[in-house]
Each structure stands twice: as C-alpha cells, then as structure tokens.
Write a protein that binds this DNA or RNA. Sequence first.
RNA 1: CGAGUUGUAGCGCAGCUUGGUAGCGCACUACUUUAGGGAAGUAGGGGCCGUGGGUUCAAAUCCCGCCAACUCGACCA
Length: 528
Amino acid sequence: MKEQKQVGFVQDIANLNDDFAQWYTDVILKTKLVDYGPVKGTMVMRPYGYGIWELLRDELDKRIKETGHENTYFPMFIPKSFLMKEAEHVEGFAPEVALVTHVGNEELGEHLVVRPTSETIICDMFSKWIKSYRDLPMLINQWANVVRMEKTTRPFLRTSEFLWQEGHTVHATDEEAEFETIKMLNVYVEFCKNILAMPVLSGKKSEKEKFAGARDTYSIEAMMKDGKSLQAGTSHNLGQNFAKAFNIKFLDKDGTHKFGYQTSWGVTTRLIGALIMVHGDQRGLALPPPVAPIQIQIIPIASQKAGVKQACEKLRKKLASKGLRVKVDLTDETPGFKFNECEMKGIPIRIELGPRDIENGVATIVRRDKLEDGKLQIPLHDISKKDYGNADNNPSHKIEKYLDILQSNNVYTFKKFYDQLVYKKGYNISKFLEELLSEITYDMYVKAEKNLHDNIAPAKNLEELEKVINDNKFALSMWCGERECEEKVKKDFAASSRNMPFDQTKIHDKCSVCGKDGKFKIYFAKAY
RNA sequence: CGAGUUGUAGCGCAGCUUGGUAGCGCACUACUUUAGGGAAGUAGGGGCCGUGGGUUCAAAUCCCGCCAACUCGACCA
C-alpha cells in the first residue's frame, strides 16, 4: 500500500505491538464505544458500544432459552446477612462489595450490599420455591448489572459496575448438575466461535483460581493479540455448598429430603473487550459482522454531485429492507477521512459510491478484515437479470467449503470467493453482501484461531516455562496439582494457571514447575 | 492498599528553572472553494491553570496540605 500521511488515529495506534494496553484504551475512546464515568472505574456505554452489547446479548439470550432456561429478575440490594451465609463466598467478595448503610440520615437496621453476584438472593428464593423433585430442574437466568469495587479498572475488562448474564440452576443429582455446568460452558464456546469469531480454550480452573463458593469452576480463556489470556466466561458447579447454606431441600422420589445440586454460569460486557483485543489492529477495531452495529457503511464520493446521495439512499433502503444494518455517511468530510473512520470503527464492509460508479453501474466494496486485498467492484443493480455464466443453483457458502479452500494452500483469494458467488444466476447485491458478511465472520475466526494455535507452546520444565511465558505465549504444561507451583509461576514469571483442558492426554510425565509427578495438563499464561 | 509519575480549553501539550496580559496543535462554529485514502482559506467561540492554604506589590510559576488520574505490584469476570 502507498505510504500515507500519518496523522490522527492511525499514527497514535501505530505502535500496537509496543503498547497494547494503551492501544486498547485509545481505540475504545476514539471510536466512541465508551467514556469514563464520573465515578472511578465506571464506564458510560455510548450508543456504538452499547449497540454491540445489545446484539451480543440477543444472540446469547436466544441460546440460553434454547437450552431450556427462563429469564427472571432479582433485586439489586441484598441483605448483608445473606452474603455471610456461605463461608468462602463472603471471604471472596467482602473486600469489593459496595455497602448501603444509610437511607438519608438514618442508619439501616440491616446493612445492604449492592449485588456483586446474585447467588445468595437467588438461593434464598430457591429455598422457598423448591419443595419436591418435581420442581427440578430449576433453570433460570438473569440479565443484570453487578457492582464490584475493584482496585484497578480498565474499560470492559474490569469496571466497578458491569452488565452480565448469570444463569442459576438446581438439580436433583450431582451428575445432572455437572452435565449442566459443562453444557453451558459449551454454549459459550459455540457462541464465541459463531457470533464473536473468537476461539477459546475451555477447561477446568485450579482450586486457586475457582469461584468463591463453587465446588468446581470451568472457564473459557481467550488469547488477546499481545499473547495475554482473558477469562471470557465461567461455569460453576456449586455442588451442595449453597444448598446447605440456604437450606435448599426437596423431597425426592424415595421419600427422603435431599439438598439440591446447583450450577451458575455467566459472561459479561468483558466479552466486548475480548473481541476488541482479539480482532483489532493498527487501524482500530474490527468487529465481527454478527455484533457490528453497522455492518455496511455506504460512503458517497462527491456527494454534492447530482444523483450521488439519491443512489446511496436507494442502495441503503434496499439493503436495510433485507435486514442488513447499513448506514450512509453523509458527513461533510473528505472520502479519505471517512474510509479511515470506517476502518477505525471496525465496520465489516464499506461501499464507496461516486459519480464514476454510478456511471458504470457498479459499487466499490472493501472488507475491513482484508482492506485493499478485499477491494472489488460489484454490479450495483440486480445481477439476476444477467447471465454471468457458470450458473450453480445451489451455491454452498458453508464454512467447511471455505475451510477446504483455505487449507489447500494460498490459492484462495477474495476474488475467487467473489466469482463463486456473484457470477451465478439468482444473485443480487443484498444476497451477495449477506453471504459476504458470514464469509467475513468465518475468515476472522480462522485468523484468530491460527493466532491462538501459533502462540501455544509446550513447556516441559521451568526453563521452558520461563521462555514460553516471556515470549508472550500460552505454556501448555503438566502440573502436580500443588498450589505452591502456581504461586511460584506467579511470583517468578507473573503468570497464572488458566485452565486444564478436557483432553488430559499427557504431554510429558513431570510437573513443569517442581519436577514431581505431573498429574494435570494445564495452561500457564500472563493474563488480564 | 503499597511504589513511581502526572494534573493548564473537549483531546494532546508548551509555559514553571529565573513570579509580571493565558499560549500552541487538533477538535468546535460560520462562510467559501474542495472531494476516489485523513483537504484549503477567511473569520470566530471557548480557561477559577485539580483543590485549600501560605509567601509576595504581584502566583499557572515558589512553599505546605489535600484530592484525582495514570503505570507497576497485590486483588478480581
């Protein structure tokens, strides 16, 4: 690409590899996703940022309902005594809960906490709702805000208040609860892949890293562009810990009273931070089409010339009527400015439309994920009226097909994809763009997955562990299971255990840290 | 909550050493010319210099306190 004037944002974020955290905060402020709130650690989600959340939320909500859960809403104020009931839980959360002690000048008889999570208040209701095995399984979910006053904060990744989804379930048996825990973890894995184009590593957390009050915690871990790990979601098997603390009992078939087995699982607005750090580049954001508030931006060139605005509006209407999220940029800026802005905001496809295009009956389209390599002119009006030869009436745009093409060398080009889709009977511009958007999602996933696998390295012993972690990679290690080894890695290499993958095939025998018997396969990495 | 750094226009900064009219770039407003990769001209608007006290004829500038933010640790989705 031609050397261009380095001004403004492009210049500011040109050092992505040098200072990734700085790039991150710059990009979300400059693209107007969020602003800092007036209270430390809080975040104002502006329309563009909240729009991502809404799309993400709706997609995930669909999946949660499909797996049999119903939405509820519980109060944000929880009596302090509730929090005290489960010993580990209170210990884990006490330092960061916001307390309400007064109403006006009057001190409350019982202090309240602003929910840091809702296990306790939900369990209190569960104990009233659940009497019989016929009431089980109890499968609920809630979309809410929670408050955790953390010492250090970063937009999306760690804020004093954040939005999330928290699922809470009660089951009659241990097996059923464990199954639910894993099932919901897998819902997250599928969601991250298909909606966020983000590959994750799923597995079990160590005792040290598990949720306060859980019996077992499973997580999905995503790799950021700088090689750091981010816990992107968790699913907990609570065992009977809360059931015993809150007296959640049911009369079973055999006529005896039993404590319920519980799970809870959640993902948060942190996912937005994750996808920024997974897909973003020197030019700014790159949003996966399913969660892009604007999927297609139409940029008029020389908009003062006759017919340009009208053509843009006509195209917008046509695409919008097919459910595509499309916008025309009518601001009084130069085209170059608009192109850059479009890229910075991560809009998956931009369409340039000027007098020349209109003359020729075409539109110029550029993919955010491929930039100049993904630049093409496509016929503006219905292609279906013409015969472009080689008609294939059952065009497959299935992921598998492109996987084959991609993996069979570098013969795959965007042009080829375009030819496959456009030069067929029955295609029109909206259909083409719709398919192009899924193609982009898939390509972004493949790219991110490659990055993930390229940056995982085995580590047999302490030296290798040090080297891998200092290379900003995930160290796939064996571990004896002792907390001291995790603490040593934390202290010496500033890294933590991430999770233990479900595939526990040994990669070597000895613990990579202490050299004793290596019981578990586990990832160590620096983390956000 | 410990260590370091910084607070001047919406954002980024200069001015402080050596006290004396509040500055620059971007952004913003109006008009004109422009327009296919970050346009140009002309004219404007915008400040309790973080905050409280002190020194002084005079404080953004010197002194003391406080507050806030950032980075690194510890803690966490």
